Simulated assay, not measured.
Amino acid sequence: MKNLNRNHNQASSDQIKAYKLGQLQQQVESYEQERIQLWNQFEEIEFEKDAIQKDLEETYSIALQEREKSKGLLQRLMSAVESRDSMRGRLGNMTAQRNRVLRQVEELESQKQEIFQQLKTTTDKLGEAYQQIGVVQEEYEQDMTELAQAYREVAPEQCEQLPPKLRELLEQINDNYGL
């Protein structure tokens, strides 16, 4: 007659707990990697924002300088009209130069608008990154608390059977996140 006892292949409770602890450790490592990745994204966005802001300040300074130049050119043009001395030749040159300056000012204004838009986009990305970091941090904190609680529920004899590094890591998590 066949032995109908089919429970001989089932894992022991120690094996199940060790397996669950292993899964939790993998989850912790995964969350830590995700947190590091989000933090790197955050730093990249911060760097991009700073670079765009610097470019914006430089462009704005150039635009102000060009504006002052164009005001000077306009003033010279007005003086030339009033004096009428060899006005026709100089007036044509000054008008062309004024038009070039005005086009440059318009281009700089357009660039300034683009930089402002880029800055807004970067700021929005930064806000999203902060939100993602907050969510991941909350999940991480919750997982660490659950892991600390699960570790406290493990019998001391079972804890002694864990590898020293894992036990040390779990004790540290328990110290940091235990209630």
Rank of each mutant, 00 (worst) to 15 (best):
A11H: 05
Q37G: 12
Q149M: 08
F47W: 10
E128K: 15
R90I: 13
E68Y: 07
M94S: 04
G178H: 00
Y60S: 11
E34D: 09
L91K: 01
Y140W: 11
G22Q: 08
G134T: 08
E106M: 11
E157K: 11
E48Q: 11
S79Q: 12
S13W: 05
K120I: 13
Q23C: 09
Q53K: 15
R35H: 09
T145V: 07
L74A: 04
P156T: 01
Q27P: 01
K20R: 14
L24Q: 02
I36Y: 05
G178L: 00
I45E: 01
T123M: 07
K49M: 12
Q37N: 13
D14F: 06
I45G: 00
I62S: 03
K20Q: 13
M144F: 01
L74S: 03
Y177Q: 01
L179R: 12
L91T: 02
A63C: 09
Q33H: 13
F42A: 03
M144Y: 01
L38N: 02
P156D: 03
D143Y: 04
Q23A: 08
L102H: 04
E32M: 14
L74M: 07
A51H: 09
E128T: 14
Q137S: 10
V105A: 03
Q161D: 07
Y60Q: 12
A150I: 01
G22R: 06
E106I: 08
S79W: 06
F42Y: 13
D175E: 05
Q26G: 10
R6A: 12
Y130L: 13
Y130E: 09
L126Q: 03
I52S: 00
G127L: 13
E82F: 07
R167E: 00
E146L: 10
D124N: 13
N93Y: 10
V135M: 06
A155D: 04
K125R: 15
K54E: 05
R35I: 03
E66T: 09
T59S: 06
K125Q: 09
I133S: 01
Q113L: 12
A51M: 14
Q149G: 04
Q137I: 03
S110W: 05
G134R: 10
A129T: 05
Q104S: 11
R103P: 02
K49A: 08
P156F: 01
